[in-house]
Design a protein around this nucleic acid. Structure first.
Lengths: 355, 355
DNA sequence: ACAAGTTAAGTTATCGTTAACATATTTCAT
DNA sequence: ATGAAATATGTTAACGATAACTTAACTTGT
């Protein structure tokens, strides 16, 4: 004669209601602190809720309410401070408005992008912020999401759609200014480390680099541009420091190595610095170096790293705000774009070099 | 006479069904590729699905199915490679089993811990992995979650519960071995940077440090132990490099500064190295230093950092596996614990020092 | 030519919660 | 004391999808 506890995992409103001797609706009122309930009843219900470890079923609730106050953020990876700061800013902004954030990681894979989108859509998030690298499969799926009326904002990546807002650092200008700075210091042979052909932020930075060289009539030497077609940084376990380290080694092995390098981001720069030191050369005397991002570590490298600071926090904040506006707005607004300025932070890794 | 499109945001199964002239059930069969559907009908349905941008409602679906194939991971923060690697490993393991991962960040706040738990529970995740620092409010709430039958696994933090599995690196032993290594090199005055009184991994590392000193009859000098009661690292924007930098400066200002330091983690160590160099001292000649974690950067610092490697990937993998077993298992298993070994990685930051 | 299997749908009930409305009781101001 | 307002609860009908069952037409082997 065992008790009749079948396989039911969680207690439901009805279970509570039954045990107390009221309607599920009354229990619901107690739980949600809405409507009128007598103190006595409330007391009994709360008691039962505690005893039976009741937890309301979000699905049923949200199915009825038609919104979740939750937003999804899809990141390519979280192993760099850029993503981290972004996520933090997004989260803070959302929390202030009573929204929650779920983060999904796609590891820069188109397939996983789709899985993430799908999963978020399945959980009926109220909106999605996408900060992964653009790719065909993912974008196609994303388009479907947008068209099924889920608000979407993209950060630092291509995605043209009438109803999708866009925030991005000015990677092109940042790359331009970093290179310009090196040119101003008198450098003529300037390397680029970490080029990627895929349409990410690093491509824009490379374009900025090329633009600066052209503008100063410096001939572009392809041997000075390192990167990988199959970007190995996307394979977990292969860090961007590695890219910087190996890229720099390759540049150093040239007959006529560069006197300065611009790295796609700070970690890459740190890897490159490591290679320079290993070769017994000095920074910035033998080789000057500029990074990108201004991660908190940048001021603690030796020598401290000249880099391009981007406004990661502002970026995240704006994206979150735009998304919330879309979520709350009844009317479809047309696309808005925000390109945020970057700022060159000059430290000792580029030193002062006389012409 | 406008068309009858009220405020409905998404098309539903019934909408599709109606437009095609079949039952919702038939549409469901097409969508889920289950049961028999004629090619002709399937064709028409798929057509309508595309035209109307249908997206199935996850709530309704999961409400019926009673599971979501989604797991939540709650992290204190994501701004360190430890969390990052952990998340990555957890995710990989889950993905292989067809599960999805939602990550929530609590910024080391008890309140936000609760928000994260609540939010995950509301979305009816099938299980939760918790890797935040232990705290009273959060733990109480977590207990409720466990008792409402949601499987939970904790990583590297206290939480005693009959049905909650536990995975952790052996922080105590790691701290012990790091300190022991410095003692073996002949150091007598060894500092500790980044102590925290709250029950986190750093506390265990500190205990390991103290144990090693005691075992070698080295007197414990409290002035050599730096940290903060109010751990400012928990305030966003205040990085652990900062803690290392400031902690080291404080140690250097002592009348009799240490000849070696053990930092709570690698970033703290990097901050400390920066302070040492700024003071014009050499590593390891003047001050030797050991970190903890073996982040990928550790081998690229100058000099390369001696550190304690922990098996972050294995940790994440085990946690995910344990959770999946609980999710899939019908029977309640009793608590399992796995303490993972750490490995001392000796690099140049501790050098070779003669007695 | 007919039982048994296959294919292609439809019907019903339900997951757990809550909005909207309905009912009943109490309070209280005039 | 009497109607209006406040309080306390119940009833009904969804939200959208699907498991389980039923119906009916169409194959097919012997």
């Amino acid at each position: 004669m065992d008790t009749k506890k079948p396989k039911k995992k969680h207690a439901t409103l009805s279970d509570i209601a039954e045990s107390v001797g009221v309607t599920p609706m009354t229990v619901s009122r107690v739980i949600n602190e809405s409507g009128y309930v007598s103190d006595e009843t409330r007391e009994k219900v709360l008691q039962a809720v505690k005893e039976m470890n009741y937890r309301r079923n979000g699905f049923a609730r949200n199915l009825k309410r038609q919104f979740t106050e939750t937003v999804g953020l899809v990141l390519g990876d979280i192993s760099n401070p850029y993503s981290t700061e972004l996520a933090r800013a997004v989260r803070e902004t959302l929390i202030n408005k009573g929204f929650n954030l779920f983060i999904c990681i796609s590891e820069h894979s188109a397939k996983e992008d789709i899985v993430a989108f799908e999963s978020l859509a399945n959980h009926s998030v109220d909106g999605i912020i996408v900060a992964t690298r653009s790719n065909e499969g993912g974008d196609k799926y994303l388009k479907g999401i947008v068209e099924s009326n889920i608000p979407v904002v993209v950060i630092g990546r291509d995605f043209q759609h009438e109803y999708v807002d866009f925030v991005s650092p000015d990677n092109l200008k940042g790359g331009f200014e970093a290179t310009q700075h090196l040119i101003d210091l008198g450098h003529k042979r300037i390397g680029f480390i970490g080029a990627s052909l895929k349409g990410g932020s690093s491509l824009k930075r490379l374009q900025g680099y090329l633009k600066a060289l052209k503008q100063h009539d410096i001939e572009i030497d392809e041997r000075l541009i390192t990167g990988r077609d199959e970007d190995v940084s996307e394979v977990p376990g292969y860090s961007t420091e590695e890219i910087g380290f190996e890229g720099m080694k390759r540049l150093l092995s040239l007959l006529n190595p560069p006197t300065a390098v611009f790295a796609r981001n700070d970690f890459t720069a740190i890897g490159a610095m490591s290679a320079i030191k290993e070769a017994g050369l000095n920074i910035p005397e033998d080789i000057a170096i500029v990074g990108f991002d201004d991660i908190s570590l940048a001021m603690r490298t030796s020598p401290p790293l000249t880099t391009v600071r981007q406004q990661m926090r502002l970026e995240g904040q704006l994206a979150a705000e735009m998304l919330l506006e879309r979520i709350e707005g009844k009317e479809k607004r047309s696309r808005r774009e925000r390109i945020l300025n970057c700022e060159l932070i000059v430290r000792e890794s580029t030193g002062l070099r006389k012409r």
